[in-house]
Amino acid sequence: MKILALYGSSRKHGNSELLADKVLENIEHTKRYLTDYHIKPIDDKRHEPGGFSDSIDDDYNRLISEFLEHDVVIYVTPVYWYGMSGLMKNFVDRWTESLRDRELQFKEKIQGIKPCVVIAGGDLPYEKAKPLVQQFELIFDFMGVKLEDWIVGDGNKPGDVLNDEVAIQAASELNAKLQNLVFN
Score class of each variant (00 low, 15 high):
74 I>F: 04
77 T>C: 08
79 V>F: 02
79 V>W: 02
79 V>L: 14
79 V>P: 01
80 Y>N: 05
81 W>N: 12
81 W>F: 15
82 Y>E: 10
82 Y>Q: 11
83 G>H: 11
84 M>D: 00
84 M>P: 09
85 S>N: 07
86 G>W: 07
87 L>I: 03
87 L>Q: 09
87 L>R: 07
88 M>R: 08
89 K>Q: 12
91 F>H: 08
93 D>T: 11
96 T>Y: 01
97 E>Y: 09
98 S>L: 04
100 R>K: 13
102 R>H: 13
104 L>Q: 04
105 Q>N: 14
105 Q>P: 01
109 K>S: 02
112 G>K: 15
113 I>F: 03
115 P>F: 04
117 V>D: 00
117 V>Y: 06
119 I>G: 03
120 A>R: 03
122 G>L: 04
123 D>W: 09
125 P>R: 03
126 Y>N: 02
128 K>C: 05
128 K>H: 13
128 K>E: 09
133 V>M: 10
135 Q>R: 10
135 Q>D: 10
135 Q>A: 12
138 L>A: 12
141 D>N: 08
142 F>D: 10
142 F>R: 07
142 F>I: 01
147 L>K: 05
147 L>I: 00
147 L>E: 01
148 E>P: 00
148 E>T: 13
148 E>I: 00
149 D>A: 15
149 D>T: 05
150 W>K: 11
151 I>W: 07
152 V>W: 09
152 V>D: 03
153 G>H: 08
154 D>E: 15
154 D>L: 10
154 D>Q: 14
156 N>G: 12
158 P>S: 11
161 V>F: 08
161 V>W: 06
164 D>Y: 04
167 A>F: 08
167 A>D: 05
167 A>T: 07
168 I>P: 08
169 Q>A: 14
169 Q>M: 10
173 E>T: 11
173 E>L: 13
174 L>V: 05
174 L>G: 04
175 N>K: 13
175 N>C: 12
177 K>P: 06
177 K>M: 12
